[in-house]
Design a binder for these strands. Structure first.
Length: 422
DNA sequence: TCTGGGGTCCTAGGACCC
DNA sequence: TCTGGGGTCCTAGGACCC
């Protein structure tokens, strides 16, 4: 019994989410910007056709926005997250064995569908998601995840495929691999693509035909796995339950440069609270944390600064009181006056399940009291929004708050926003 | 003026131990 | 002058993903 996977990928996901609730955008070039309206992270097909590249800074696009009436949106993760959940719930109608790979991609196990018309099945997945959520998707089906990725990608490129491609026949797989550039293979990034090209490996077909020894020597066991997957040998299973995270990070660029420690403390406090909330959500505790502080990478000579400080906790905790105290201590130790700072953030590390925490003899805090307080805070924030309760050091001014000049309404999660829709 | 945020995994090499 | 060898743990850095 051979394996069979489908990769369902939402087309231009963030742009499609904006469109799903605003039909006047259909047929127009739409782009979605990163946090702080920094650079382009999603484009509709019309925007791609105008030559707008992924990752370009928003200001470089100004002329096109004017002349071509490009519709620009700040990112609205509340909306995209909710739409993502709707898509996944729809996909669950088709198989109980599903891996949510990212906000806009899921792998489905179709291993029990031998004898079924796979093309028709894939088409019905696509049509159902479109009908139930308004989000267009592409479906690629193949014996391994890596091949399903390739099938998915080709399904979007060919007008004939129309967003669905089944690669089970050896002849079709060979043809697909010959048409796929090495850098478009899942797991091969820019660096490896360059290195492979130097060995005369240019297409996925070339890569499939290298020896195991070559793959292992130059691209580690990860690369070898990719080669085997290209040959149709499934090495990557579906991850039905998302593994709990080993690091949890929250960081943001400031809307404008900050110079004062107090302002940066406000930002870091908010990040630490968010980060600790994520930690408790996966029922874990952290044994260490790192705080970093940096100027813009584009700052001039002598104005560049980056520093970070890692602190270990006496025993792992999920109390934001403790984490916050440590984070601020770390920040104060790396802050230097005289720089124009761009970004700060916190990374929680040495993460363990909350029920396996080793208590330290030096542990001085009142763990039970803190745990009750955290439970209350989580419940309040869940109900009234993340900013409803905070700390004095957070301030109320939000001098660091993100720029979001083009935000759309949270159509799916806020009644007030929905009522405003005309 | 303006350039995102969040993750994972693997390896090499040093420290340290017996 | 001789200057083992094997194992483990940790960390930094490099590569990748969305």
């Amino acid at each position: 019994m051979t394996s069979l996977f489908a990769l369902v990928d939402c087309n231009n996901f963030y742009a499609s989410c904006e469109r799903a609730f605003n039909p006047s955008l259909i047929g127009k070039p739409v782009v979605v910007l990163s946090n702080n309206d920094g650079c382009v992270i999603a484009r509709s097909n019309e925007a791609k056709a105008l030559g707008i590249k992924m990752g370009v800074p928003a200001f470089e696009m100004a002329a096109l926005v004017k002349t071509q009436e490009v519709q620009v949106f700040s990112s609205n993760y509340e909306l995209y997250g909710d739409m993502s959940r709707r898509v996944v719930e729809t996909l669950r109608q088709f198989t109980p064995n599903l891996e949510v790979y990212s906000i806009d991609e899921s792998f489905l196990d179709l291993g029990n569908l031998r004898g079924v018309d796979l093309g028709a099945y894939a088409h019905s997945i696509k049509a159902t998601v479109q009908q139930w959520t308004g989000i267009p998707v592409a479906v690629g089906v193949a014996p391994t995840k890596t091949l399903a990725k390739i099938a998915n990608r080709l399904s979007k490129k060919s007008a004939k495929a129309g967003g669905v491609l089944v690669l089970t026949d050896e002849r079709h797989i060979t043809e697909a691999l010959k048409r796929t550039d090495i850098s478009d293979v899942w797991g091969v990034g820019r660096r490896y693509a360059k290195k492979l090209a130097a060995f005369g490996v240019h297409t996925a077909w070339d890569l499939r035909n290298v020896t195991d020894a070559f793959a292992k020597k130059h691209f580690t066991v990860v690369g070898l796995r990719t080669v085997r997957e290209l040959r149709g040998e499934a090495c990557l299973d579906l991850e039905l339950v998302p593994p709990s995270k080993q690091n949890i990070c929250t960081s943001r660029s400031f809307a404008r440069r900050l110079t004062e420690l107090q302002d940066i403390e406000q930002a870091l406090t908010s990040h630490a609270v968010r980060c600790a909330t994520k930690l408790r959500k996966q029922k874990s505790c952290a044994g260490a944390l790192t705080v970093f502080l940096e100027t813009s990478r584009f700052a001039g000579e002598g104005q560049l600064y980056y520093n970070s400080r890692t602190l270990s906790l006496a025993s792992a905790t999920s109390s934001e009181l403790e984490l916050l105290r440590c984070a601020l201590m770390a920040l104060r130790s790396i802050y230097r006056p005289g720089y124009r700072y761009k970004k700060t953030g916190i990374i929680l590390q040495d993460i363990v399940p909350a029920n396996q925490v080793q208590l330290s003899l030096l542990d001085s805090g009142n763990r039970e009291r803190d745990a009750r307080l955290m439970g209350t805070l989580d419940a309040l924030r869940e109900r009234f929004g993340h900013t409803c309760v905070g700390y004095g050091v957070q301030g109320t001014g939000k001098v660091w708050a993100m720029k979001k000049d083009h935000i759309s309404p949270c159509y799916t999660t806020r009644l007030a926003d929905l009522l405003q829709v005309k």
